[in-house]
Amino acid sequence: MAHWRDTMEQLVRDRERALLSYAYLVCGDAVQAQDLVQDALVRTFSRERKGLTAAKAEGYVRRAITSAFVDGYRRRQRWQRVQHLFTPADVAPDRFGQVEAGSDIHEALATLPPRPRACVVLRYFDDLTIGQIARHLGIAEGTVKRYVSDGLDQLQLALGPLDDADAAAATADHADVTERKLS
């Protein structure tokens, strides 16, 4: 068996649920999550990457999931299409400022626009720094900060106060600065 395929199948065998769960967190739809994971696998393994193990590949695939999600959003030419694809119909009526406190995290995430949502997931699920998110999504760090900040505010409307929100939003910058200083 070709090495890449062996690696891919091992990854899917061992981490299928984790990847699908992650993709679901990113997009909020099981069917789309499935497509995102498959697209991400295609993106990851379409390039020759020597020495790629299943463990390393998982990192690539996770990044590709968010890339695919945001890219898909970017490339739609009509917002209605974007709305249909990225905001499940049953949660589409939710609006900023209109989610009731105590909502499920999935519902709260569903109220976020795609790019802020991707930024929040990358920041708080993947523990990426602002700079890493900016480089990954190809947007300015300031934009990422804004998305994260707005996303957190919106999530707090739905979920109530978040212990890590204030500090993390602020220290995101600290972390970046620290990262740069250390490097």
Partner: peptide
């Protein structure tokens, strides 16, 4: 904590019918 909530949410993601 948002990070904990998100990880819990990922664990509970309704993706039983999804597969790769």
């Amino acid at each position: 904590r948002l990070s904990d909530s998100m990880r819990g949410a990922a664990d509970r993601a309704p993706i039983d019918d999804a597969s790769v």
